Simulated scan of single mutants.
Amino acid sequence: MSRPLSRRVAASVAAAAVLAGGIGLGAGTAFAAPATGSLGSLGSSGSAGENAGEYPSSATKTTDNIKVTKEVVGGSVAPGQKVTYRTTFSLTGHPDRYLAKVIDHHPAGFTYVQGSAKVNAWHLIGGQKTEPVSAVVDAANGTVSVENGAGWALSTTGSKTVTVELQYLVPQDAKVGAHLDSGVSFNVNLFGSTQKFNPIGAYTTIRPQNPGETVTTGSANLGFGSSDGAGGTTGSAGSAIIENPAGFIGDIISNVLKSAS
């Protein structure tokens, strides 16, 4: 083995060891992307760090007997990554309501991830369940909407609620440290006007990319992740290290050897 090649191999192994060591120290927080959770179990909202009190990642508003909670799942996101907004509707008392349309107001520059819209609502057959729905994008007004002409049922009887999830791609030039508010509007059958909370006070905090995300979005040669059709990638070098650290290091050495041959 030539001296330049041996130095490159040694440097690659050392770098991989540092990354793998960082995994052990970070214990799943340094490299893991925010979990999106599921519509069936809402869980708690993520923290926005030291500014969580001033810039909360969730907010609740009430109009008439309808309570609306909008949540930024995970609370923070890095430029070039995806973020999920979850909005839940419930009633504080009678009468029952039927939610006909939900309009999500997202921060400027965010791009809707096609096919990501889901609604958890009550059905006559099957009860409360989640299903994908079609979404209408209005880029000029910065909104994405879903609707049901007959209306999704809201009732305190049987705890009938409606939860809408939408996913967005954050622009690559999003400013780290920014706190971006969002909003929601909705129509209820027999209501005379659209109800609007925009802004609502549910902030997305833009954080720096973690090491795994930096490799994923910045190095095509390593081949980590695949296109998700929305300008981002799926998978990450961070998850590859966690799942198979020995294989990850071996792949780096193999790539170095191939490039030098």
Rank of each mutant, 00 (worst) to 15 (best):
G40A: 14
S47E: 03
G40F: 09
K67H: 01
T88I: 13
T29V: 07
A59V: 07
A33C: 04
E50R: 15
K67R: 15
T63Q: 15
V73I: 08
S45V: 14
A33T: 11
I23K: 08
Y55R: 07
G46I: 04
S38M: 10
T63P: 00
F89S: 05
S57L: 13
V18H: 07
T36E: 15
T60C: 07
T69R: 11
Q81E: 12
A78P: 08
V72T: 15
A52P: 05
K82C: 01
S44P: 05
A27M: 08
A17C: 04
G24F: 06
S58Y: 10
P56E: 06
S57G: 10
V73N: 01
K70M: 07
T69L: 03
A30C: 02
G75I: 08
V77H: 03
V73Q: 00
S45P: 13
T69P: 01
D64S: 15
G26Y: 13
N51G: 01
T62H: 04
I66T: 11
I23A: 02
A78N: 07
K82T: 14
N65S: 02
G24A: 06
F89I: 13
S38F: 09
L39N: 12
A35K: 12
T87I: 15
P79F: 02
G80Q: 05
L25T: 06
A27Y: 10
T88P: 08
G28H: 13
L19R: 01
R86L: 10
L19T: 00
A17P: 00
K67W: 00
Y85I: 02
A30R: 05
K67D: 05
G49P: 06
V68A: 09
G43D: 13
A78Q: 12
K67T: 15
T87M: 03
N65L: 04
S47M: 00
A59M: 05
G49C: 03
T36R: 12
G80S: 13
V68K: 03
T60L: 12
A78E: 12
A35F: 05
F31T: 13
L19E: 06
A33E: 14
G74Y: 02
K82I: 04
I23R: 10
A30F: 08
